[in-house]
């Protein structure tokens, strides 16, 4: 059994769908942070069968966790301080997403305009529908 020690201070992302941890690692830009990060994949879970977990040691006040809602709002976000969970964050669908998904419309300006960020806006929260802000091409939450 693989053993990863607990956190003194940081964030634990739990109940990530198995196999998605690396996509989330990249989406949050965790390759650019200074603190220690553990990506644990394919962990046995009573609830999910298999799941992934990401543990981040350090101070992440500026980290934009809203984007997690786009991937999967069932992910549990535990804020840890002095080895204790002091807060559990509930995720909701982010209103805007920048630089996470590409517009699939070949006629969209975002495909040719240099350094134009790919931006999507939540237009139907019930159906989890996002639309490209430039051409209104549809995209769905990745859940």
């Amino acid at each position: 059994m693989l053993s990863i020690t607990g956190l003194h201070k940081g964030i634990v992302l739990d109940h990530i769908k198995a196999g998605r941890a690396l996509a989330i690692y990249n989406a949050l830009g965790l390759n650019k942070v200074n603190g220690q990060v553990a990506v644990i994949m394919n962990v046995e879970s009573q609830k999910m069968g298999r799941k992934d977990i990401i543990k981040m040691e350090g101070n992440y006040e500026d980290l934009d966790l809203d984007v997690l809602g786009f991937f999967d709002h069932h992910i549990t976000v535990n804020i840890v301080d002095h080895n204790e969970i002091i807060e559990k964050k509930t995720l909701s669908l982010p209103r805007n997403i920048t630089g996470m998904i590409r517009c699939k419309n070949p006629r969209c300006i975002s495909g040719i305009e240099q350094e134009l960020p790919q931006r999507f806006m939540l237009t139907d929260p019930n159906k989890k529908v996002y639309r490209c802000i430039y051409c209104e091409e549809i995209a769905y939450s990745e859940e």
Binding site: R107, C108, I109, S110, G111, C135
Partner: peptide
Amino acid sequence: RHPKEGAALV
């Protein structure tokens, strides 16, 4: 007028 969708918004 531009052939790409969203050009005027940009």
